[in-house]
Amino acid sequence: MMSCRTATQLMSESLDRPLTRKEKLNLVFHKLMCTGCRRFEHQLNRIRMYAHTFTKKNTSE
């Protein structure tokens, strides 16, 4: 099975480039079995949303 180290790196990359079919498949399998990485992915998306909200907050009233 793919390691959490690799899975988290791929989750981050998925925010910057389209993953290949194989990468997506491996990630799906990994997430099925790993609570930590499921949370990690969800939290990365939250962090992106926070960053966008933070910019908007700071650049308009």
Partner: peptide, 13 residues
């Protein structure tokens, strides 16, 4: 092996 250390595993937010 590249797996989370038990106490470093992401917690529920």
């Amino acid at each position: 092996k590249g797996h989370w250390h038990q106490d470093e595993k992401p917690k529920h937010w």
